[in-house]
Simulated scan of single mutants.
Amino acid sequence: MKIIYDPVADAAYIYLQSDPNQYSHMVALDPQAAGGMINFDYDTEGLLLGIEVLGAKRLLHPDLLSEGLESGAAVVE
């Protein structure tokens, strides 16, 4: 698992597969139920590739966001 975090956009992406198959589709979680925007990305075989979290500061633990910054992810400023 790998996480990247962009503090300017306050968006995080959690990669669940290191060698994902081809992207197929996205399913959005109900923003009211989740308290923010969370999108699930699936591959062509129906396996979960990753999770996009918008408004990440509200929804993810600060340690996880720090890990996303330290992972060498491209941070847009």
Rank of each mutant, 00 (worst) to 15 (best):
A56C: 02
Y5W: 07
V75A: 11
M26L: 09
A9K: 11
P20G: 08
N21H: 09
P20T: 11
D30Q: 00
L47T: 12
K57V: 10
Y13F: 15
M1L: 12
D10S: 05
Y15C: 06
A34L: 02
L29K: 03
G68M: 11
Y42A: 05
A74C: 11
E52L: 12
I51R: 06
A12L: 02
Q17G: 04
E77K: 11
N21P: 11
G50Q: 10
N21C: 10
A9T: 13
G55K: 04
K2D: 08
G72E: 07
E45T: 13
L47H: 12
A11Q: 07
Y42I: 03
Q17M: 13
F40A: 12
Q22L: 12
L69I: 14
I51C: 10
A33Y: 04
G72W: 08
D30F: 07
P62A: 06
V8W: 00
M37C: 01
V53P: 05
I3S: 03
A11E: 06
A11I: 12
D19T: 12
S66H: 10
Y23D: 08
D30C: 11
A34H: 02
G36W: 02
M1Q: 10
D10F: 09
I38K: 09
M1W: 04
Y42S: 10
G35L: 00
L54A: 05
S66D: 14
R58H: 07
P31T: 01
P20S: 10
G72S: 08
Y5K: 03
K57P: 00
M37A: 12
A74L: 14
D30L: 11
P31E: 08
L69W: 03
I14C: 02
L54D: 01
Y15L: 13
S24G: 14
Y13N: 07
G50N: 04
V27C: 01
H61L: 06
L49K: 12
A73C: 14
L49I: 15
I3Q: 01
T44I: 14
G68K: 08
T44Q: 15
Q17H: 10
L54E: 01
E67M: 13
E52D: 15
Y42E: 01
L69R: 14
D30R: 05
E45L: 14
Q17W: 00
D63R: 10
M1N: 06
Q17N: 13
K2V: 00
G50R: 10
A11V: 14
A9G: 12
P62T: 08
L48H: 09
L16Q: 13
G35P: 07
A11Y: 02
E45N: 15
P7A: 03
D41C: 12
M26S: 14
L64A: 15
Y15H: 15
G72H: 04
A34W: 09
A34G: 05
A34R: 07
P62N: 10
F40M: 14
Y42K: 01
A11K: 07
P62M: 08
E52M: 04
V27L: 11
G50V: 07
D43T: 07
I14V: 14
M37K: 09
G36C: 01
I38C: 03
A34Q: 10
L69F: 00
P7W: 02
D10C: 08
L59D: 04
E70H: 15
